[in-house]
């Protein structure tokens, strides 16, 4: 299944910019399209669209959500093994592994290095084999 973009699209390119798997293409002021094979139904394109031009995989129109309401990944440091799967899965390069704090420090953990670029897609949480990432809004459980 995949999201789709209707003719209501005005080609603002915002969805293209936020798609974490680079599945949206299109020229400025022209209707954009979603690569159906690549789309992972994260819903980020639907959240940013101001024109209601995005349909989810069930064909239902998505609703805009203010960016400040988007969730961010929270990583349980006690469980994280720093295996790099989430870092690798993040197409927008938002996650990093912590650096050692002293010589001989082998404790490491993934963390959100670029919160601004993060679109809260949840791909990292989905990919984490230890289930130690949860995407939620700041200030919520």
């Amino acid at each position: 299944m995949a999201h789709t973009i209707t003719e209501s699209c005005i080609g603002c390119t915002l969805c293209q910019k936020v798609c974490p798997v680079f599945a949206v293409t299109g020229e400025l002021k022209e209707r954009h399209t979603v690569n159906a094979v690549r789309c992972v139904d994260c819903g980020v394109c639907g959240r940013i669209c101001a024109k209601g031009a995005v349909l989810d995989s069930g064909g239902k129109a998505t609703e805009r959500v203010a960016r400040k309401e988007w969730g961010k990944p929270y990583i349980d440091e006690a469980l994280c093994s720093a295996c790099l799967i989430c870092v690798d899965a993040c197409g927008l390069n938002c996650l990093k592994i912590s650096r050692p704090t002293y010589q001989g420090d082998i404790n490491a953990c993934a963390y959100l290095a670029d919160s601004k670029a993060c679109v809260g897609c949840g791909i990292c949480a989905d990919a984490c084999p230890l289930r130690c990432i949860r995407v939620r809004k700041a200030g919520t459980a």
């Binding site: 093994s81 790099l84 870092v87 050692p100």
Partner: peptide
């Protein structure tokens, strides 16, 4: 400078 690992590896 630090240790690291292949993607998916906890051994690093």
């Amino acid at each position: 400078t630090r240790n690291s690992g292949c993607v998916s590896c906890p051994i690093r």
